[in-house]
Simulated assay, not measured.
Amino acid sequence: MTSLFRLLPVSVLAFTLACQSSSAPPAPSPAPPAPPTTATFTNPLLSVGPDPWVYQKDNVYYYMSTTGGNITIRKTGKMSDLGSAVSTVVWTPQQGGVNQRDLWAPELFFLDGKWYIYYSADPFCCAGHRVHVLENASADPTTGTWTYKGRIANPNQDLWAIDGTVLEQNGKRYLIWSGHETEGAGTQRLYISEMSNPWTLVGPRVELSHPEFAWETLGDPDVNEGPEIIKHGDKTFLVYSASHCSTDDYALGMLTASSTADPMQPSSWKKSTAPVFVKNPEGQVFGPGHNGFFKSKDGKEDWIIYHANPRTGQGCGDNRSPRMQKFTWNADGTPNFGTPVAVGTALPKPAGE
Rank of each mutant, 00 (worst) to 15 (best):
D140Y: 01
H210A: 13
R101K: 09
A257F: 02
R205E: 15
N224W: 02
V90D: 01
T66P: 03
N336E: 07
K300G: 11
Q94N: 10
K297Y: 13
M195D: 14
A153Y: 12
N319H: 10
E301T: 11
W329I: 12
Q94F: 01
S80W: 01
H132E: 00
H307K: 04
E107G: 01
A121W: 00
P281S: 13
A185G: 15
G96R: 00
K57E: 15
P340Q: 12
N336A: 09
M79S: 03
V276L: 02
T182C: 11
R205Y: 12
V343Q: 14
Q265M: 11
R6P: 02
A139Y: 02
A351R: 03
T92S: 02
F237H: 06
A331H: 04
P93T: 10
P335S: 02
M1C: 07
G333H: 05
D158L: 10
A274W: 05
P322Y: 01
F293D: 02
T38M: 08
E212H: 07
P204H: 15
N43I: 08
N43Q: 09
P310V: 11
A346M: 10
V89W: 00
G333T: 08
S22V: 14
I304T: 07
P281K: 13
E194K: 08
T147Y: 06
I304K: 05
T182M: 08
L159W: 15
K297S: 13
L4G: 03
G184H: 05
K279I: 06
A257V: 07
A39N: 13
N224P: 06
F327L: 02
A214K: 07
P281W: 11
K114N: 15
P281D: 13
T236G: 06
C126S: 13
R173G: 07
G186M: 06
P211H: 04
P348F: 04
F41W: 08
A85M: 09
M1Q: 09
A34R: 14
N319P: 03
G97Y: 00
K271L: 06
Y306T: 03
G317F: 03
P93C: 11
A346D: 12
I304D: 04
V276D: 01
P288I: 14
L175S: 12
M1T: 10
T187V: 13
R311S: 13
Y61W: 09
N224L: 07
K295W: 07
S47D: 10
S138F: 06
Y250A: 02
P26M: 10
A85N: 04
W115D: 00
M324L: 04
M195Q: 13
I230T: 13
D302G: 09
Q284G: 12
G299Y: 14
P227L: 10
T16W: 06
Q157G: 09
C245P: 01
P36Q: 15
K295T: 11
V341R: 02
N197A: 12
N330V: 11
G338M: 11
K300F: 05
L103W: 00
W303L: 10
R320P: 03
